[in-house]
Design a protein around this nucleic acid. Structure first.
Lengths: 124, 124
DNA sequence: AATTAAAGACTACGCCTGTAATCTATAATT
DNA sequence: AATTATAGATTACAGGCGTAGTCTTTAATT
């Protein structure tokens, strides 16, 4: 699996918003949330390319970037990894931890019920 | 929040199994899963102490270690962090990702239902 | 045509991490 | 008492990471 650092993920996340995109577009998108220097983001783009998370095509003097991996795939793998490390691979204890510390809202509960419902419908 | 590396967490996790404990007991516990040199584990113990995750008392020539933080607290904070980063703070999309990729077992579903049940009982 | 500006490439640098090896002090053994 | 073994302290070192700065090339502007 491709391993990304936090900062690298944030850059990729800005690309996932909408792609393909140029470096300047990505820099623009990130400027709201992060105080990163343009050079920093370019470094991170380079590292992402090197890791195989991004590809690009030349367009004049610029590069047009594209993700090589999908967000859902990446986050699923990270989630599995996380749950394995901290909860021996079982998901309920994570949710239970949230419940115990009052971190669950009624909306969360409704959404979870829906996930369960959908799952059950799929198990005919 | 105390930030632990993966290796540091694994050492602390071995202590959480049962504490207080000596370095050699921790080394013993870790020997099943990890191919770590004794020196490596001692280094990690030292770093954990420095980070405030462990404390110890001298007992003759040895140290008796104790966690300064609880596993449930640590994993809850890590979970919040994780879910914030990858799912904008909402827990259902994580579970939903598992469901979509067929990562949920009937047991998981049952456990989740129980968590929801308990939560609802608590909302009198 | 000459100059400038901007894109990407390359270099930098200190801190964290994984992974120990060596040093030092002291308890245990001979 | 002298020697040895062992616990912890200190040192090491390469690679990843956050965070840019400088160099080089080429497109744009004067």
């Amino acid at each position: 699996m491709i391993e990304l650092s936090k900062a690298e993920f944030d850059v990729l996340d800005a690309l996932w918003i909408n792609y393909p995109a140029t470096a300047s577009q990505i820099i623009e998108r990130l400027s709201d949330d992060k105080q990163w220097h343009e050079k920093t983001i370019k470094t991170l783009l380079g590292r992402l390319v090197k890791k195989g998370a991004l590809s690009f095509e030349k367009e004049g003097r610029q590069y047009i970037y594209m993700p090589c991996i999908e967000r859902a795939d990446y986050t699923l793998k990270e989630s599995q990894n996380f749950i394995e490390r901290f909860f021996s691979g079982r998901i309920a204890p994570l949710v239970s931890g949230f419940a115990k510390s009052e971190q669950l809202s009624q909306q969360d509960i409704n959404e979870l019920k829906k996930v369960i419902d959908d799952w059950e419908k799929n198990q005919n």
